[in-house]
């Protein structure tokens, strides 16, 4: 949870100002995604490392809260809007933001982890492992990366490069998987185009 009680109350206070009560939804989601993350981490690395998974998750959650607060403040300035209840009630937004924070933690603490019981199986926990853990579409993860980098000054150059590589990988392949929300976006924009100009003659 937030680094210090004071900081936590600031976040909760600003979330309330932005139009939502964080206790019920954000905290519940952090808790339930935490169970999933720790389970998947332990499955991947071994039960002996469950505590490590838990610590990594807590670091990710702290970063998630900090970036969320900075992001909302930046949006408030940019849009001169105070109510973000629609965004704050968007489950995919929160899951993507938390996944991005966790990806940074996982990349920071190393890419592979050998099994805790000493077997040689190496498990690659680097991107896109976190997408599979939360069953998150790559394109939804992609949508938070640039804003995350914009509002989080503490990211190292290496980490920014890592996130950029994630972006490229998503745009080059992961976003084009059959169930990607990118296709819906393309369809919608085509339909919007279709409404603005005449339909093409069937011959073309």
């Amino acid at each position: 949870l937030p680094q210090t009680p004071v900081r936590g109350t600031n976040l909760i206070k600003s979330l309330k100002c932005f139009g939502m009560n964080p206790e019920d939804s954000i905290l519940k989601r952090v808790e339930s995604l935490g169970h999933i993350f720790k389970k998947k981490f332990a499955e991947a690395v071994g039960q002996g490392c469950a505590e490590i998974g838990s610590q990594r998750y807590q670091l990710g959650v702290r970063l998630y809260y900090r970036v969320m607060e900075s992001m909302l403040k930046s949006e408030e300035e940019r849009l001169s809007v105070h109510n973000f209840s629609k965004l704050l009630n968007d489950n995919i937004f929160h899951t993507s933001l938390l996944a991005c924070a966790l990806e940074i933690v996982m990349a920071t603490y190393g890419r592979t982890a050998s099994q805790s019981d000493g077997t040689s199986a190496e498990t690659d926990l680097s991107f896109p492992w976190i997408l599979n853990v939360f069953d998150l579409k790559a394109f939804d993860f992609y949508k938070v990366i640039e804003s995350f980098i914009k509002v989080e000054p503490s990211l190292t150059r290496d980490m920014i490069k890592h996130l950029e590589r994630c972006e490229h990988r998503i745009m080059e392949s992961l976003a084009w998987q059959s169930d990607s929300p990118l296709f819906d976006l393309i369809k919608q924009s085509k339909e919007r185009e279709g409404q603005t100009d005449q339909p093409e003659p069937t011959s073309t």
């Binding site: 949006e75 965004l87 914009k150 490069k161």
Partner: peptide, 21 residues
């Protein structure tokens, strides 16, 4: 960060990307 290629245009941000504008 200088060497990150920001691609969002003016008037585009996280609210627009999640259709919450």
């Amino acid at each position: 960060p200088q060497d990150y290629h920001f691609g969002l245009e003016e008037g585009e941000g996280i609210s627009e990307l999640f259709d919450c504008d």
